[in-house]
Simulated scan of single mutants.
Amino acid sequence: MEKRPKPEACSSLSQSKGSLVENSDRISNLPAHIAHHILSFLMMEDIVRLSIVSKWWQELCISIPSLTIDGRQYGLKDFSVFHFQNFLDRWMIQRNGMKMVQFCVRWIFLKWHSQEYRFLTWLHDAVRCNVEVLYLDLIIVLPRTFKMPLCVWHCESLRFLTMHLHGAVLQLPSSTRFTKLQSLSLTSVRVFEEIFVEQILSSCNSLKKLCLDDVEGVNNINIRSSSLKYLEIRSYEHDNLFHLNVSGELLEELIIRWKFTPSGGRSLKMATPHLKCFKWGEFAPDNCFLGNLKCLRYCALSLEQVSSSWRPPYLEFFHILERIEELVIHVLCLKVNSPIMPHHF
């Protein structure tokens, strides 16, 4: 019996279905850097599942240049975390030195000694992959002390380092050498060395950005750098910071938010001849020497409390107002100093 030809509509539908099947895997035709960018929006668990779909997907997932590991989502008795850790161990080994631009770890360590080796192995593998950006957000319950391995301190490719230790003690190795580090940010860190900041600066000749947020254990912070362009110091929770000295020939932006129990003996000294942007908030110490600010173009003051014997902070900038392009004074600062506010301001 002779077959009848398919109706034209049915024929078109079949062709469209075939075309749909052929074009369903469009990501495999994308350049690797675009495919990696798409994968960067996925959680690590999703990337793990993708990697077992096929060999092609496995190679694509393993070669991701930016890797984020977030273990905070697991419960204290969640055994799936162990399977996830085992997979990560194999994952890092399979990279075999493949370039890694960014490595981010957010993790809770209940017993650091039992998990230390595994975590430090991840860091060692990241260094072996020439990591450029390292972000560590670690909650260490016991023994509340973290010492980064020498391989990270001596990493030639590292450019940006951020550490948030949630109050844990940070110990520097006896030998520190950040030859090419450009940005360092420390948040909620405790230290035992009074010259902690000086040790870091002496090891970072190329450092351009430094952020110290709630660093406890230092009475005096002395910043002396010929490379820094951006400096941010925030101190809210602790009363141990008494003297802040900032000296930077190339420093262009300075942010200070300093809160403490009012008492005598605190001081701020600045030697920043090329400073362009200055943001000063919270409290002002009794003794302030702001130095030469002839290049200042933007100033924001939000001081809530100053010494009764100290002049209003904005008077320090009065003689250079003609050079400032933008001056911002918070209403709290005006209320605090209203009894001695100049009439011509």
Rank of each mutant, 00 (worst) to 15 (best):
4 R>Y: 04
157 S>E: 07
7 P>A: 11
271 A>K: 09
200 I>R: 01
221 I>E: 02
234 R>C: 09
55 K>E: 14
180 K>E: 10
270 M>V: 07
46 D>W: 02
44 M>T: 11
66 S>W: 05
111 K>V: 14
132 E>S: 12
172 L>I: 01
236 Y>E: 11
62 I>Y: 07
30 L>G: 06
11 S>R: 13
58 Q>H: 15
268 L>Y: 08
113 H>K: 07
77 K>G: 05
262 P>M: 12
65 P>Q: 11
13 L>F: 09
312 P>T: 03
197 V>R: 01
157 S>T: 15
225 S>Y: 03
192 F>M: 12
167 G>N: 12
160 F>G: 00
60 L>V: 14
335 K>F: 13
161 L>R: 00
190 R>S: 13
10 C>V: 10
15 Q>W: 04
222 N>Y: 10
129 C>W: 11
156 E>S: 12
203 S>A: 09
71 G>P: 00
119 F>P: 07
294 K>V: 05
203 S>M: 02
289 F>K: 11
223 I>P: 02
264 G>N: 11
113 H>Y: 06
235 S>V: 08
71 G>C: 14
122 W>A: 08
316 E>H: 14
276 K>T: 04
290 L>N: 03
165 L>G: 01
47 I>G: 00
33 H>C: 10
123 L>N: 07
245 N>P: 00
342 P>A: 13
160 F>H: 13
228 L>A: 04
319 H>T: 06
320 I>M: 09
243 H>Y: 06
168 A>P: 00
110 L>S: 15
237 E>D: 15
222 N>C: 11
155 C>I: 06
74 Y>Q: 08
199 Q>I: 05
205 N>L: 06
203 S>K: 02
240 N>I: 02
227 S>I: 01
339 P>T: 09
141 V>K: 14
124 H>R: 14
260 F>Q: 03
339 P>R: 11
49 R>P: 03
248 G>F: 04
254 L>Q: 02
341 M>I: 06
216 E>L: 07
295 C>T: 03
49 R>D: 05
154 H>A: 02
324 I>C: 10
287 N>H: 08
4 R>P: 02
94 Q>Y: 12
230 Y>C: 03
126 A>W: 07
210 L>Q: 00
236 Y>H: 14
339 P>D: 11
56 W>E: 13
192 F>S: 13
325 E>V: 12
101 V>M: 14
22 E>C: 07
107 W>R: 13
41 F>Q: 04
195 I>P: 05
236 Y>Q: 13
275 L>P: 04
55 K>Y: 06
159 R>H: 08
221 I>Y: 04
62 I>T: 14
288 C>V: 15
293 L>Y: 02
23 N>D: 15
305 Q>K: 15
36 H>V: 07
233 I>P: 01
